[in-house]
């Protein structure tokens, strides 16, 4: 319908272009969504426990374990210091081993997940450091077990920070996913690079960038809203 309207009022070529772009955009959006969802899921499932591990094994807390702490920190730092483009290539054998292929959005989700786990673990740890140590001390004074302190003190007190961190992670992952094109992962960012940069179709690039901006804004405001709802520190 829109195609006909554009064809009638402007030109049939433009109409064809718009429809093609729309189909491409929809595909790319689906791919981005898939990659980012998988890696966000892994960020939560892997990054959250790793962040807790980094925190509770540090010197100040109840499970003081230097070996686990140093190992965890080292691993996170190494993963965080490798530029994502390189990590993408570096982890190709892992992707091959896990999925049996290295091509497509699911394959790109493997290095994205690894990066996301390390990234989110660091944010989780820093949120946990923000929790007032006095509250943990109070819980200890009332005879609370370490696991219970994690579940009933650290988690709820740091939850707003976790949500803010998850927002930051999600947005970074959308950015990272643009590089997924290198292994044929597709996605919106990849679309912008392929059409806008390699084929000089500036209008496609502009449209995709606009879509990305809108997407990031949405994610950020949703994250902010969830975090401030969970946060009762200043009401």
């Amino acid at each position: 319908m829109i195609e006909q309207w554009i064809a009638a009022n402007f030109s049939p070529e433009l109409a064809k272009q718009v429809v093609e772009l729309f189909v491409d955009l929809l595909n790319a959006f689906g791919e981005t969504f898939l990659m980012v969802s998988i890696s966000t899921l892994f960020a939560i499932v892997g990054g959250l426990p790793l962040g807790f591990l980094l925190h509770v094994t540090s010197r100040k807390l109840f499970w003081n374990n230097r070996l686990a702490n140093v190992t965890g920190n080292f691993l996170v730092n190494v993963l965080r210091s490798i530029p994502f483009v390189i990590l993408l290539v570096l982890l190709l054998p892992l992707t091959q081993w896990v999925l049996g292929t290295t091509i497509g959005p699911t394959a790109a989700a493997v290095p994205l997940s690894v990066a996301a786990i390390a990234f989110y673990a660091r944010l989780v740890e820093s949120s946990l450091c923000e929790v007032d140590p006095g509250v943990v001390e109070a819980a200890e004074a009332f005879g609370t077990s370490p696991l219970r302190i994690i579940a009933t003190v650290l988690f709820p007190e740091a939850l707003p920070g976790f949500l803010r961190g998850l927002t930051v992670t999600l947005i970074s992952l959308i950015g990272y996913s643009a590089m997924a094109g290198i292994v044929g992962g597709g996605g919106i960012g990849d679309l912008a690079i392929r059409f806008g940069y390699y084929r000089y179709q500036t209008n496609v690039m502009v449209v995709t960038v606009v879509v990305l901006v809108v997407l990031v804004q949405l994610v950020q405001s949703l994250g902010d809203r969830l975090a401030s709802r969970a946060d009762k520190k200043d009401i």
Partner: peptide, 24 residues
């Protein structure tokens, strides 16, 4: 461990900076 925690449950404590859970 558990024995110490049970003993602590019989000893209340209050703090200079209250140490309440902000999100509860």
């Amino acid at each position: 461990g558990g024995e110490l925690r049970r003993a602590r449950q019989k000893i209340g404590m209050i703090f200079q900076h209250f140490n309440l859970m902000q999100n509860r």
